[in-house]
Design a binder for these strands. Structure first.
Lengths: 343, 343
DNA sequence: AAACGGGCCGAAAAGGCTTTCTGAGACGCT
DNA sequence: AGCGTCTCAGAAAGCCTTTTCGGCCCGTTT
């Protein structure tokens, strides 16, 4: 079904088409359309009308070639599946979108070789900058300092402190979570969290411990590290209740863990939140709002991380001050039914 | 902390830098690097060495300007949050990625105005084609037939049958789901599904009914439409058990619904899968594998949809036959613990 | 010996746009 | 009348690469 004269026939109009129709030179047409001053008003309107008649859209490729700036950035992610890349991606798209920037998306699938390949391809396309999004908050290798464009790392910081990284404040997140539970009058707080190999797990636990210490309290038992799964949440809760039946709140390292925790609490005849308050992390809607009761959770403000990264990149591209180091952004507690003040 | 001589100083090398270093003309350098034949072997190696010394990467922008093809495509999605866009996006990235194509990602947030804006911006960047990804399988307005580049619709088909759309086979999905339950020896099958305003809900129900009819059976009661939520799954299950306690399988319109269904079944003392088998739709890992027992679910093969869309687009770009109409791709049943043959 | 044919290289154009520089015409001033 | 000054339009260069075409040098043929 190949067709000689398909529906998508006409080549896009060029500036010289516009100039010809308006009866002026290419240079004048360009100036007229770009608001340059050296054009008589009458001439300008004639050119603009011609451009509209032809549905003229300036070729950004040509413009990019000339200007040395393409108005594009590369967004390099390591796991699209993960729920962390997406909000960051949205925030970045958001921060750029309104303006004149377009985003190339590349998924390296967690493979350093593929990542290197993508970086090369993006540089070949002369992107103006790069955002690197990780799938966990542990530091990752730098892309190197020799790149011809600025780079910002989001969520997963770069190992190199000369790079600029924007990450959520995991320690602070643990702290505000505990502060919320304390505000609800809970004092016997346990912590069930995920893989101890994750910086996020360690940092949240550290923040929680610090907040409790500040109030002259301590966790009920040690933090229980395990996996980021409902199954671990269930298993750990069973052990917890056997050893510490007095617990009146469980801070969970993720929403998934919290779901498992809630299930076992209910099975054991404990009411949530009356007897035991439960909190999660990540504020993953599908889990928090479907849970019974809806789950209070710490939101890492990932869209904001994405926006901040995009903004920092934009500043660097525009020749502004180029920051470095790891900058943290605060998290926030989203309160739902699983935590309420003690009666 | 602005710095005059930052770490990212040098402009990328151009072909003329390479030519100068190798002591040849620009034309010769180009031919040498691109494997053209009219270059002596010795000259070619000299040029290649020079290019490596300078870390030369051909400027794809210039190349695109010249060739009239940029090697880029736009991917227009309506909801990045949704779990449907992402696998499609991955499939598309996959199909292109290895080759020479880069993907511009744009999220229209479900807003037609913003979508139009993005289309214009992408055309201004002279993308070679567009993929439009929807958030549900209901037909959506066409971008129009007057675009200068080919367009493929993925997941959400275009209303215009002249466009090419690639969608999962929802009717077939309902059918194979029922066939699996029948193969497990279940005959009293109920269907609890989501919002009746979704084509996917209607089509899956239709497929399920057809498969049952083919076996000389019928659904237990009518399909129960509601919402795509656990809450609805719980409520509908309670009603179902009151009216039809004899049910031995529940086909659910989504994994979330299935989670709710399983919860209520267990609360009512019914064993899954021994007494009642449960199936979901979408095969959303976080739900299916965390459920007790793990949930059998229908996977819509969305990555495959994305790959197929990318492939069709690529063919159209390369001047191959340009297909039209809505093409469906089969779904598949992923069997887990929630469905087993009757003892 | 003259012509011819390859092999290899370089000049130049093309692609669409922006910007600088030059030039033409109009006007006011001495 | 002559000159300087403005305003506005156009010519041309430049961004970087690919490709065509012309030309040079040598070896071969008649």
């Amino acid at each position: 079904m190949a067709q000689a004269t398909g529906p998508s026939r006409s080549q896009p109009a060029t500036l010289s088409d516009v100039a010809r129709l308006a009866g002026v030179s290419i240079a004048t047409a360009s100036k007229a359309l770009n608001g340059r001053s050296q054009v008589r008003a009458e001439t300008r309107t004639r050119v603009i009308e011609a451009a509209e008649r032809l549905a003229f859209r300036p070729n950004q490729v040509a413009r990019g070639l000339l200007a040395g700036r393409t108005g594009t950035v590369g967004l390099l992610t390591s796991d699209l599946e993960g729920r962390f890349s997406i909000p960051i991606l949205m925030g970045a798209e958001d921060a750029f979108g309104a303006g004149e920037v377009a985003v190339f998306l590349c998924d390296a699938r967690g493979d350093a070789i593929r990542e290197q390949h993508h970086v090369r391809a993006l540089l070949g396309r002369r992107v103006d900058g790069l955002i690197v999004v990780g799938s966990r908050t542990d530091p990752r290798p730098s892309l190197g300092r020799e790149l011809p464009v600025p780079v910002v790392y989001a969520y997963a910081p770069s190992e190199n402190p000369e790079d600029l990284s924007i990450v959520p404040d995991s320690v602070g997140a643990g702290r505000i979570a505990v502060e919320h539970l304390l505000a609800c009058g809970r004092t016997r707080i346990a912590h069930i969290t995920g893989d101890p190999g994750y910086a996020a797990a360690q940092e949240r636990a550290e923040g929680a411990r610090a907040a409790l210490a500040g109030a002259g309290l301590a966790l009920v038992g040690e933090p229980r590290f395990g996996a980021w799964s409902e199954g671990w949440g269930r298993a750990a809760t069973a052990m917890l209740l056997d050893q510490h039946p007095e617990v009146d709140a469980v801070l969970c390292g993720s929403d998934q863990i919290a779901r498992g925790v809630i299930d076992v609490l209910r099975e054991r005849g404990l009411r949530v939140p009356e007897d035991v308050a439960v909190m999660g992390f990540d504020n993953w809607r599908v889990l928090t709002s479907a849970s019974r009761p809806p789950l209070t959770s710490v939101d890492m403000n990932l869209e904001q991380v994405g926006r901040a990264a995009a903004h920092a990149l934009f500043t660097a591209i525009s020749g502004g001050t180029r920051r470095s180091g790891t900058e943290t952004l605060p998290c926030r507690v989203v309160i739902r039914g699983s935590t309420v003040p003690l009666a």
